[in-house]
Design a binder for these strands. Structure first.
Length: 337
DNA sequence: AATCCGGGGAT
DNA sequence: ATCCCAGGATT
């Protein structure tokens, strides 16, 4: 990791030159849940307004607030200011070089305390931010959403276990750079990754599914039967959906809420034997407000009843016409198989 | 264990 | 539109 960092890490971030506890602390607070590119201009303006910790402590809440405006999570600014004043009163005007003392300050948790000690002083403490969580979850093949205590505990354990004996500031920065630029959330650069040979997720082909994403609210589940009906020329029967509701006005496969309704619809529109329909594997689809389990039924070599040809909302279409159409994604996916 | 805080980037 | 981001505090 250190070797990779020397060659490919970020060495020119504003808080790296010069490196001081105050600047590291300020950057760590600003970077909580906020991306580097967003923070940089705020960091520079803030530092110009309050060059050192006593300056910040002496400022009014309004002055601090003015510098923070636009960054979000405004409790961070209030805590920052409060911490500056505590440091002036209790720690001689600087941040304490002590884990528990840092942890006791408002706005500083376990990861930020570790980051300050490692970056400012080279002390041997682990961090666990979004980058480190992602790298460790993949490297060790740790499943489960990192927001749960059990998973977070494992990740902290690994973060602690990997700590080197020297170059802690560089190592800390290396992990974050690694996660931010190489082991990224989407499309990580596994092919050039120096950890590839030992990465469990890579070996198991699970890179894309780790770390496990946050579980969304449980969506209600509905099911629908969709009829994939082909005539003797291989044309597919499509039905225009009602003007309101899901996929309003789009062409889709004829749909029924259950098996009986499907048979009933089939017998009214098609001449053929519905009992010989082939059940294809379910196609799951997620909307914003519910999950739909599509149960496809396929029949081919059908002969349409006369009425079908006259119905404006019901049409037999060949492959080429289908491609030009604009089907709902799961329907297109189903027909493309 | 869940929820809140928040603007913004990436997809 | 959705997920996530150098998390921590509160409930």
């Amino acid at each position: 990791m250190l070797q990779w960092f020397d060659q490919a890490g970020r060495h020119d971030l504003p808080w790296q030159h010069p490196r001081s506890a105050y600047r590291v602390w300020l950057s760590e607070i600003m970077l909580q849940q906020t991306q580097v590119s967003t923070v940089i201009p705020y960091f520079e303006r803030f530092l110009a307004a309050f060059p050192n910790l006593p300056d910040l402590a002496a400022a009014t809440p309004d002055q601090v607030s003015a510098q923070w405006a636009g960054l979000g999570y405004y409790a961070r600014a209030r805590n920052l200011h409060a911490t500056a004043r505590i440091c002036v009163e209790q720690h001689g005007g600087d941040l304490p070089r002590d884990f528990d003392a840092l942890l006791a300050l408002p706005g500083i948790g376990r990861s930020t305390a570790g980051a300050i000690l490692a970056q400012a002083w080279g002390d041997r403490f682990a961090i666990l931010d979004g980058n480190v969580k992602r790298v460790l979850a993949r490297y060790h093949g740790i499943s489960g959403w990192p927001g749960t205590p059990a998973v977070e505990k494992q990740l902290w354990q690994q973060a602690q276990a990997h700590l080197p004996d020297s170059r802690l500031a560089d190592y800390t920065q290396a992990q974050m750079d690694f996660g931010a630029t190489l082991c990224t959330r989407a499309r990580p650069a596994c092919l050039v990754c120096v950890l590839q040979s030992d990465c469990v997720a890579f070996a198991q082909g699970r890179v894309d599914e780790l770390p496990t994403s946050k579980p969304g609210k449980a969506l209600p589940e509905r099911e629908a039967i969709m009829l994939w009906l082909e005539d003797e020329q291989g044309r597919v029967l499509l039905q225009r959906r009602p003007p309101t509701g899901i996929w309003a006005g789009l062409w889709s496969l004829p749909e029924a809420s259950d098996e009986a309704a499907a048979r009933d619809w089939f017998d009214r529109h098609i001449s053929g034997d519905f009992a010989s329909a082939q059940a294809l594997p379910d196609v799951p689809h997620v909307f914003s407000h519910y999950k739909l389990r599509i149960q496809p039924r396929r029949l081919s070599g059908l002969r349409p009843r006369d009425r079908v040809g006259e119905d404006n909302d019901l049409q037999w279409l060949d492959r080429e016409q289908l491609r030009a159409l604009g089907l709902p994604a799961p329907i297109r996916k189903l027909l493309d198989r």
